[in-house]
Design a protein around this nucleic acid. Structure first.
Lengths: 214, 214, 214, 214
DNA sequence: TATGAATGAGGGTTCATTCAT
DNA sequence: TATGAATGAACCCTCATTCAT
């Protein structure tokens, strides 16, 4: 059926445009044109612009997880290796962290309840799967996987924002060496931060016998 | 001088409005009215709406740091205590995490170079001070304080977004118990996540003799 | 033949929807669905949305006339009785006055010439019949029936609009007693107004011997 | 103050455009341009497009009434003379009947409550004044003036619609002589219809002692 | 004859910012 | 310094209608 193809074409078009522009600068008209369709046609596939990007995020998340899970399937010796793999798969999907940063303040604010629920359900499934995976691979205490996943989610959002500064900031950082502290690399930073987070969780685990509060 | 008073009045008005509305929903006209001034007058004090909020962020950050530094001055026994204090001072300034989330995608994108530079310089100073403080209090390896501060910054942005969901999401979470995983409390989560992060850093520190890569 | 059935099903669907919504709010897609057909199929039966509603109006008018003529067939003693019957048959077809109000500004503006001509011819026939009926029953001067019919048409359009206010107006009228003047009942008002009109025509008739100017 | 001038300029621009186009075809951009202002400026003076046209209607009504009242001030011998004057003043303001036809289905549907109330109050005042005037001049029974005004209002709406057919209808009527019945002149028809209505009211008055039901 | 995917025109409205006074 | 009137860019979305199958 051509229906599915159009759907994918629209998502691809959106992804392509979003790769080089901000969410606000990507217009539905451009997305349509990029998919070889008319403006109004987009709305046969997506309720709103936000719904389209939510789908994009959903796909990116799933792809990332499948990819990561597959890579982590084999015997993993150390936590640092896990972290490295995660940082690597994350860095390989530059759209994902940016979409994640759009999720709460924008995407979830203009989709109908049904779409929202569907997304949240999928997110829950993914989160649970990731949590299980982490608990297994890192030999974590039960329940810690969820927290870890959540914190990774938050960290990713924040680091992506910091690592992708506005044009003016970028040129400022390049000009003024004294501000080099703010010149960070997403990939590097994610690995380090997650490394600390993962280590911390394992350390924290033993001393505290009581279940993690949440 | 009345000038300083107007300046402060505008910031207060902005803060008050931002406390109950989103950035986009706070209009310059409202801010002006709240300060007892006319619309055009705001622009005698702030280049743009973003510049005003950048100032707000700057003030919040400084206040937070002063507050935190003062509290951490005394002898601190454990890392967990430090974390608790930070989580507490952070939770006491609900505007700060939200403004931080605005910083990179919005505020820095519409201010002139001068304002931007001034802000970044102040931010650098604060970051350095915080880093030093953390290194001292937590007895961290040199350089780790900067990373920690950065990660805390990122974590705060992400957690604040997740913890303040859109109205539709909020009601969905309350309705559907199966999604309770997503119902998080900023304060609690910050403390836990920072706890793991801080522990992780201290653990990681020893094995790796080499300087932290960045 | 199934064709006729589809045709009627579409009209019924349209009538049903129009009974509870404004013309603009009734979509062709809804009409199709209500008739158990696909969107595109509607256009095999009606050139345009306007053509469909024109047909609806045509049917309503004919039904009204047949109904009214039948009722007025017997010996009618007084004009007031005639008026009462007309007001009654009119009130019994709430769609008719509303469709009449759509006729000139909307329906006639988007149908092809053929459809338009067919409608006008049918309208002429009906008008003539009604005029004859009125002249006969009210013992009017020749030619007066046409005028009377026309004025009744105009009066009906206007009163229907006034009697069916926007939601905001309705609540305003209910709230503010001082505006009770504007709270009118279509049925009551039509009867009174037509009563005056019919009486007036009969009075005017005699003094002016000259033919009605038009 | 220039403020009042702009206000009037916008109304004049709107009136000018509405004189040769339908409501839907008149855009706010055109109105602004016609007044020598920018698009957004219109919204400093009128909440919505509908509010602007409501003001236009308000002005037209008042002007018509003042004009009519002034003309009817002197001693009026006969009802037919009154009717003639009304028909004449009405015909002199071609926008008024058209705006009246917009009032209920369109204008009242997109203005805020305050504007709506203000308009209705003004309309009530005008209606009352007109009713008083009619009662005085035509020596009507108390209360009949209101009814007469209302019916005149309704009749005007309907006749204006019938008398201003769509382009296609107009050409059809000119082509096909058999449809000449539908070729009516607003001015003529208003005078005749009001003549009948006014006569009818006077006739009806006497026989029925009981107060007019409404 | 039926389908339903595709089309694409179309305009009101907001609000940060400017500037004449 | 203060004012507030003026500016104007920018865009989503609906839905009647068409047409390939």
């Amino acid at each position: 059926m051509a229906k599915k193809e159009r759907f994918e074409a629209l998502l691809s078009s959106g992804a392509l445009l979003f790769a080089s522009q901000e969410f606000d600068d990507v217009s539905m008209a451009e997305i349509a044109k990029g998919a070889g369709l008319a403006k109004g046609t987009v709305y046969l596939y997506f309720e709103t612009k936000e719904a389209l990007f939510l789908q994009l995020l959903s796909d990116e998340m799933r792809a990332w997880f499948d990819n990561t899970a597959a890579t982590l399937t084999g015997p993993v010796s150390e936590a640092s290796e896990v972290v490295q793999i995660i940082a690597s798969t994350l860095s390989g999907r530059p759209l994902l962290p940016r979409l994640l940063g759009l999720l709460h303040p924008i995407l979830e604010r203009n989709v109908d309840d049904e779409t929202l629920f569907a997304f949240k359900s999928r997110l829950l499934e993914l989160t649970t799967n990731a949590a299980d995976l982490f608990e297994r691979v890192l030999d974590l205490q039960a329940g810690m996987g969820i927290s870890l996943t959540l914190w990774m989610h938050a960290l990713t959002i924040g680091l992506a924002q910091i690592a992708a500064p506005a044009a003016a900031v970028k040129s400022l950082l390049q000009t003024d060496r004294s501000l080099s502290t703010f010149q960070i690399d997403f990939s590097t930073e994610v690995e380090s931060a997650l490394g600390a987070l993962f280590s911390g969780i394992q350390v924290v685990r033993r001393p505290k016998r009581s279940p993690h509060k949440r």
